[in-house]
Design a protein around this nucleic acid. Structure first.
Lengths: 109, 109
DNA sequence: TCGTTAATTCGGCAATTTACGAAATATTGG
DNA sequence: CCAATATTTCGTAAATTGCCGAATTAACGA
């Protein structure tokens, strides 16, 4: 995770439709949904949805798997934790007493 | 944390200069830095910096404290964890076996 | 092969975002 | 009060983003 990757991920999330897509897929779990189901559930026209999916995928936030004619998209939840780790790394200049609770979370990832 | 607040936070982070400001302040810890120090360190002209600081502050990602003429800005790290919790809530439709590692992180926040 | 279903690409316009100089506001010391 | 320092607000031009219809690509089934 470098700054460009982090910017790409935050930009991807910083849009209501894409955020809704991601959160829907988080709720659906590892199998995710096919594009048509996302389109129906969130009422997004296919061309618009396709663009948003490609933004999320390029940012590493979604995984796509083709199954016959259908493409299953699912959320990559680890990417969220990688983002946190990047944003909070080296926090408090190493004086851990100031942010030990947060650091203890990151150590487990 | 609702969707609007999350969008505001992600939008704030989705910009290289603001990301650099936030990460600098994370490294500096609770005392943070005054505007002039941020301006010098990152070489951002004051008017531009001021705009970015206000975006980050409005999104709840920075805290500002006035001390005489100087304003100290510091990073609100808990906000990052609130964001993760919002984005991953209700993950896997409650079937925890699919994402227990991530859920165990969130439980501790 | 042809028709159908699934999904993506393309084109163009409207709206939003960003940067920065100039001016304004706020606070302090003399 | 005045001058100096710290920070914010304002105005504007350039770049980016988001949306959707039409066309295109891909994969199947008869």
């Amino acid at each position: 995770m470098d700054q460009n990757a982090a910017i790409e991920a935050f930009s991807a999330f910083a849009q209501p439709t894409r955020m809704a897509i991601y959160r829907l897929l988080v709720r659906k779990g590892p199998d995710g949904l096919i594009v048509g189901q996302i389109s129906e559930t969130l009422e997004i026209v296919p061309s618009t949805l396709s663009g948003h999916l490609s933004v999320l995928k390029r940012a590493g936030l979604l995984t796509a798997t083709r199954n016959q004619r259908e493409i299953h998209y699912s959320a990559n939840m680890q990417a969220m934790l990688d983002l946190v780790e990047f944003m909070l790394s080296d926090c408090c200049g190493g004086r851990v007493e100031n942010c030990s609770e947060i650091l203890s979370l990151l150590e487990r990832t």
